[in-house]
Design a protein around this nucleic acid. Structure first.
Lengths: 333, 333
DNA sequence: CTGTTAGCGCATTCAG
DNA sequence: CTGAATGCGCTAACAG
């Protein structure tokens, strides 16, 4: 039963066919998930034989002829790219639910992505979900010799399908919330403005604030990080504090909160209101009850599944698909 | 260049061989990572041809003959099994560094694991890392037709290799830290004692405290959760508070801290010291500066890599491999 | 409905 | 050192 290596010999479709007394082709048909023509009797015998042998199909071998492995690559820089675990957990569950499995590729920061992928299975997957910003859409397409690449990092172009959060919605709602609470002046803590995504995000804040008649005072440039938030928090002290502080990342908002804990007794705003961005799951812990803006994870993942189900039919007009963001109220807002 | 589907045709080794003017076999040898006999001239031409065509080997096809895919399955219940992202990030990076890729399988809570895996590539991977407690070692072995299964969930037996944290070390160090700071009395907040792992952990605390002459007063049973920690914290109020509170999970310790914030001005202990367990990365944020106990992630992953490099040679005596845990001092301790 | 044949892309004999 | 032939496990095309 065991070979020299101690590894069990895994039965092939040939073994099944022989035991069932039919040809390989018939066994293959009986075992296929699609309904191919097989007599009920033969199907019975094949299935019984397979069961008895503990046979399971080798999808790798099958992929040689069918050209599809039911494998999708998920490309990230680091794990932390998957801004939070809940999203990834959902993505994984849904992907598996449609009969595909995920091979997770960590690009790291290094540059030689292509060289790296060259030796890996990733090159031959059915489709790729690109969270990593290692490369633009053109590189990604070339890398997977196909258009079956979904850009989720904002680095899309006119040719590759993409899904991006519609940030305007959530920002509008957050600013409306502040306005409704009497906020008249605000500060903005930003990330690096070299990012196109960030530039656009900042623009949304400017316009939303203007529409609500809220005056934007200080604009403090950070880098999305917790540390930069703490520094911003320190600069927010004193008499000239605004009615509200909007941060373009939750990490920065957490930094602001930690720097100004005394201004938030019981987590409630005593001097100014605080709004973050991303709605990371950490905010559900009571230490960081920060009002934030997040996209609808379910809708986001649903779009990815739509892509996986029919990569070529997705977004035929070439326009990026938008996923709504929404405002999530917590006690700092 | 493109087929009807819009998918680019990917060059095979045949294309390379033809362009280089050699046989398939020679091209294969030249392209192989091992040094097989090929003339320098031919190697040159093959490599050039491959480069020109943008050829990359198809590892799936190769696996048909080599019987090895360089794919390892990582089995989890939910993503959160990977107690924190840092571990997983490291695991992924190291796995890729030795030329293997990770296919991540989420078991969920559902029961029909086998039926699920049966149709997937996972069944035919080179090795599996089992974090999920979906099954015991026997089931895992049967499922992958091999002994190439590393149990990391504590559900190992005498036959399958396993890696588990040596909790005694860290607990000893944490208790020593407390003793050195003059702690004479302690309380223990536990998880569900139905778990064997938890029973053992509690035992370590009992013995370490006894050895240091620290009296154990209240033992509060929780369930590892943040909420149960908060409740324990409420019960810790009043005059009879101990000098130190040890929790068998960080989440519970966070709950205790949030329930007793006023006893930790600036995060420093005013009435009692607080120790957690797991050393989750959240503790690096200033809101939860809890002294904790964690295993050495690097050592942990190193053992996994040792297994992947030589599954059959790992732990030949059948004993589980222990990974040291250590005490990590923060301000609550 | 069924069996035979011919590959999928690749590594590996085995002769030269 | 090289090329021709063989087979990995499976499905598709083709007769029957």
């Amino acid at each position: 039963m065991t070979e020299a290596t101690g590894r069990l010999r895994v039965p092939t479709i040939d073994d099944v066919a022989r035991l069932a007394g039919v040809s390989r082709a018939t066994a293959s048909r009986a075992l296929s998930s699609e309904k191919r023509p097989v007599s009920a009797a033969n199907r019975e015998r094949v299935l019984a034989a397979a069961e008895q042998l503990g046979y399971r199909i080798n999808p790798l071998a099958r992929s040689l002829t069918t050209k599809t492995v039911n494998l999708v690559a998920v490309l990230v820089n680091h794990i932390h790219d998957l801004s939070d675990l809940d999203l990834f957990d959902l993505l994984l569950a849904e992907t598996q639910a449609i009969g595909k499995q995920v091979i997770l590729i960590r690009i790291g920061s290094g540059g030689k992505v292509e060289e790296f992928l060259r030796r890996g299975v990733a090159y031959h997957v059915d489709a790729a979900l690109v969270f990593s910003d290692f490369a633009d859409a053109g590189t990604a397409r070339r890398m997977f010799h196909s258009d079956r690449v979904l850009m989720l990092n904002g680095h899309h172009d006119r040719l590759s399908p993409a899904v991006i959060p519609d940030e305007a919605l959530g920002i509008e709602a957050a600013v409306a919330d502040a306005a409704g609470k009497g906020v008249r002046t605000a500060a903005l803590v930003t990330g690096r403005t070299s990012s196109l995504v960030e530039q656009e995000r900042i623009g949304f804040y400017h316009r939303a604030l203007a529409r609500r008649g809220i005056g934007l005072g200080q604009v403090i440039q950070g880098d999305y990080s917790y540390e930069s938030g703490r520094q911003a928090g320190d600069r927010l002290a004193g008499a000239g504090a605004p009615d509200a502080v909007f941060c373009t990342s939750d990490a920065a908002a957490m930094g602001v909160l930690d720097a100004r804990r005394t201004d938030f007794p019981e987590g409630r705003p005593a001097r100014f209101r605080l709004y973050g961005f991303d709605n990371i799951s950490l905010l559900d812990f009571s230490a960081y009850p920060i009002s934030s803006i997040g996209y609808d994870k379910t809708a986001y993942v649903r779009e990815m599944m739509r892509f996986l189900a029919d990569p070529d039919g997705f977004a035929p007009d070439g326009a990026p698909v938008l996923v709504p963001t929404r405002f999530v109220a917590r006690s700092t807002g």
